[in-house]
Design a protein around this nucleic acid. Sequence first.
DNA 1: CAGGCGTGGTA
DNA 2: TTACCAAGCCT
Length: 365
Amino acid sequence: MAGCGTGDLPLADRLLAWYDRSHRHLPWRVSPGDRRAGIVPDPYRVWLSEIMLQQTTVASVKSYYETFLRRWPDIGALAAAHVDDVMKAWAGLGYYSRARNLKKCAETVAGRHAGIFPDTVARLKELPGIGDYTAAAIAAIAHDRPVAVVDGNVERVVARLAAIATPLPAAKPAIRAFVEEVLSRDRPGDFAQATMDLGATICTPRRPACILCPLAPDCKALAAGTQEAFPVKPDKADKPQRRGAAFVAVRADGAVLLRQRRAEGLLGGMSEVPGSAWNARIDGSTGLESAPFAADWKKCGAITHTFTHFRLTLSVYRAEIPEKEAPPGHWWSMPAELAGEALPTVMKKAIEAAIEGATKKQQQG
DNA sequence: CAGGCGTGGTA
DNA sequence: TTACCAAGCCT
């Protein structure tokens, strides 16, 4: 390593030196410079960002994080919020059980912990929505505890460093043991963020920038030229196709009829337009038999949407409804309110298809 | 442990 | 267009 300058330093020190000059600037992050100046992260912000970032990209999270922080600046504010307002604010971000657990967790911390987040992994894991990763992340980043923080980035980094051939998730214990062995005891929070930044910007899933990697001298996969072969993951089953019908009832004043989904399961607790179940084979039928009530339903198109474990094709119907009371469990949402409803993306697509379809017909006619 | 659970971006 | 992926959790 003579001539490499820092090649003789421990792995953690080389990683932290890289992080000090190459870290990402993120709204929820305390930069290494600020941390050295004594600025302490707000556990509420760390927690909020970590929940949002579960299986979700930084780019998607940023605007939601800013909105939530402005509207609910601390744990007390979020604990006092109405869960329906939280669901509305979360709409579009996905994995909606996170939003319900976020609210439950805020209530627990505000009520039973006097508004103070626990600082141990074990206590943090008792809270709803906080698992192995998030508990470790909060302990390390918010409380500077020397714990192993292992997310998808770190799994990839370590699997390559140590050329771990065991497929995930069986390889997780070995990966965790590696991190516990090398993590910084002086700067645990920065070390955790540094490993994740390295995975996100250098040690990427495809075409990693090994030439820029501060850990290249340590990397067994790089030495063998097999970086992209790690981590080893099982094959994923292909997604089945489901079909269904969605009914967009539009009143003369433009209001759209909505209802709420059950709290559990897919899109739990979110709002939707009335529709059929999503496993029905309506190939031979019109789909109209599942309409919420009799009306002059006109098919105005179909939308497709891909969920985690199936593809959905929705036939979209629209009807102009004269002044009519909403059926039990339903409500009319005025145009000005519609954008603020707790509508998942698939429902926004369906409503859009109905409105657009009608607009086109008007223009043509 | 395996499978349910969203969405948008990228190659 | 298909396939994979992104700071996972819960049952």
